[in-house]
Design a protein around this nucleic acid. Sequence first.
DNA 1: GTCTATAACTGGATAGAC
DNA 2: GTCTATCCAGTTATAGAC
Lengths: 217, 217
Amino acid sequence: MPGVDPRQHLLDYAEALFADHGPHGVTVREVARRARVDPALVHYYFGTKTALFEAVFTRRAEVLNAERLRSMDAYARRAGEHISVEGAVEAFLEPILRRSVEGDPGWKNYFRLVALVNNTPEWGGEMMTRYFDPVIRRLLDILRRCMPEARDVDLFWCYHFLSGALTLSLSQTGRIDRLSGGACDSADMEALHRRMIPFIAAGFRRVCQPQGEAHVA
Amino acid sequence: MPGVDPRQHLLDYAEALFADHGPHGVTVREVARRARVDPALVHYYFGTKTALFEAVFTRRAEVLNAERLRSMDAYARRAGEHISVEGAVEAFLEPILRRSVEGDPGWKNYFRLVALVNNTPEWGGEMMTRYFDPVIRRLLDILRRCMPEARDVDLFWCYHFLSGALTLSLSQTGRIDRLSGGACDSADMEALHRRMIPFIAAGFRRVCQPQGEAHVA
DNA sequence: GTCTATAACTGGATAGAC
DNA sequence: GTCTATCCAGTTATAGAC
């Protein structure tokens, strides 16, 4: 393979395999075989299998986090006083949903991996915190401005529901396709986007702002 | 261990380990070691590691599904014309949340395992469908009566959000504890219950019944 | 039913030639 | 940087004694 960085090449295949089977379900040899790279080179580049896993997780996290912070800042500036729960959630999710809609297979694999990690006790609590907390705090800051009377514990729990709904939707298990007998397509990220924002925003309002539920911005 | 069924005993320890690390992260030897049972007996009782995993998953699914169907039927009878989205979701979730509140460690491990499976492409689509679809169809039947104008695709997507929010909440990764700096306790299933029902019900209404959002039952 | 022994194999990791 | 050869710990699974 001329002109290809073998390091990035390995990360791509490791990402896809880790997303399907989880780190324990993947062997270094299998990653190397798929990438048509010698198994010993995986250790040359990354040292250990665990380090390879961390490298996969880090690579896109940094790109994504930076963009999500920009997206929320831009929204807050743009909206000014007319800030809304829908707008905040939209700004938080947009960088993820846009990449999903665009269909880049690397990003789709990455999101499946995040979903798996998020729901696995062995890594979930620690890794998700380490990589994504700053972005979430920014979202909650904006939501506090929309709902000044919201209690922090309510905001945290509602974010937890958002996180679960989002990661399952990104995990692409084909679940909703089977459940609906083909009426829904788990790869249709446009359909997801249209429903997810109002669903989540309505939930936040109901729990965090029980009195003011009626006035939708 | 006198008077203990070694089969159930093995299932308990396998359940706990599978829930923590996923099937690939667990060895038959480790299950046997924890259960203080000879490794060869695992094969004697269950045949293969995969069969052990299926046995773990099946054992409680049957108990739980039967009770969830009863719970929803009882609610539909009791509520009659005054059926509500909140009530339907509550009836659907009650058998799960009650067991979580009661704190039986076996059930808590099982719920963590379901969360992990739900978000792993390797098994998620197939196993969740095979075990849980009848219960979900019953929920959607009741919701259709609450929201006659709801479209099926909307109901399926909203259920998907419910499923993601629920399984992440049951996965007990300690995520929300860290995120909230200790203000929330992921093991506090009462706190979960109080917020989850209104959050999910509001989301369903907003997406499936955009016109009638104002009149809460 | 239970345990010992072992077959047959695969895993991560490395030393060292090129 | 790349690849061959290999170490060795650990894997599922089973045969066969008790």
